[in-house]
């Protein structure tokens, strides 16, 4: 069997397992509870679902007798600390940028000044340190996804779409990988995750937007994985995206004195969520491209030496 055929076979098994196990969980949830996030079971389902890609990776390696070589578990901390740091700090910047953009686009004039002048520095610092602390403790969930998507799916896609035009094949891998990852999120998007339910074209538009966001996040997380040679910085970065960005933008926007009407429309409106995802995607896409360029330059220098 050729390398590509073998990679395709393994990838199909991985995707079947990953999608099968996650969708089975959500199928049970949706049958019993419905297409909603308003249930205590929702947290159980999403947290368990995050572990399924890692489980699928392990099961696929066992089923196909592939072994655990090239599993991106290597953990060389020295020299890679910057990638852990980027993973932790970038969502903070992203959260601040989201708040600024929301102030400048949706909220009334003067909101930006209002937001920054009302910041309680001690509280803001405490919130950030708290979010950092719990993010590190909860890395298991980020690892659950990253070990599957970045640790198994992306390398297999790279083999599958390998060609002489390296850049083009890499772009194809990002687009296909991001789309698969976005589709994996489809049930929770249909439940109202990230975009709510009150928008035109629900849920298909949300799923489409999620796929686009996942392509951008995928580029960033793949860049971290490739630069460090391990999925661990990506796992930490994934958890900080989930934990820090939105919590921080909500905290910052909470400083603005606004009428109940505006606050309600901000919380439930689609425009805020759209800005949130757009800014996040743009920031992480830029960061991913930058990391890849820097890494490529570093490798070039190493080669010439």
């Amino acid at each position: 069997m050729t390398n590509k055929k073998l990679a395709a076979k393994r990838l199909i098994i991985f995707l079947l397992l990953s999608f099968g196990m996650t969708y089975a969980l959500f199928f049970i949830y949706i049958i019993n509870i419905g297409w909603t996030m308003d249930s205590s079971w929702y947290g159980v389902m999403t947290a368990s679902g995050m572990l399924m890609p890692a489980a699928a990776n392990i099961l696929t390696r066992i089923i196909t007798k592939e072994g655990f070589e090239n599993s991106f578990l290597r953990m060389k901390i020295s020299g890679n600390i910057r990638y852990f740091a980027i993973g932790m700090i970038l969502p903070v910047f992203s959260g601040v940028i989201i708040s600024v953009v929301v102030c400048m686009t949706i909220l009334p004039k003067g909101s930006l000044g209002n937001m920054f002048s009302n910041i309680d520095a001690a509280y803001f610092f405490s919130i950030i340190t708290y979010l950092f602390g719990i993010t590190v403790a909860g890395t298991l969930f980020g690892f659950g996804e990253e070990f599957g998507w970045r640790g198994y799916m992306t390398p297999k896609l790279e083999i599958l779409f390998d060609s002489e035009k390296k850049r083009l094949s890499q772009i194809i891998v990002f687009i296909i990988g991001g789309t698969i990852w976005g589709l994996w999120h489809a049930p929770i998007i249909a439940c109202g995750h990230n975009f709510g339910k009150d928008y035109p074209g629900y849920p298909w538009l949300g799923i489409g937007l999620m796929c686009i966001s996942c392509i951008c996040f995928g580029i960033y997380l793949t860049a971290l994985t490739k630069a460090s040679g391990s999925v661990l910085p990506a796992a930490l970065a994934h958890m900080s995206i989930n934990n820090i960005t939105n919590s921080l933008s909500s905290t910052l926007l909470g400083n603005i004195k606004m009428s109940d009407e505006i606050a309600e429309s901000l919380n439930s409106g689609f425009s805020y969520k759209l800005i949130d995802m757009t800014v996040m995607s743009a920031v992480f896409l830029a960061a991913g491209v930058l990391i890849m360029i820097t890494n490529a330059k570093k490798k070039k220098i190493e080669k010439t030496l």
Binding site: S39, S40, W41, V44, A47, M75, V136, A137, L140, F141
Partner: peptide
């Protein structure tokens, strides 16, 4: 790292079980 990873992993898995306990009972965990 072994110590921290072990503790954090078990606690992370327990949070899922606690949420399930709360969901079964209909109360907030």
């Amino acid at each position: 790292v072994f110590n921290a990873a072990l503790s954090c992993s078990v606690v992370s898995l327990l949070t899922i079980v606690y949420q399930a306990a709360g969901a079964i009972n209909g109360t907030d965990a």
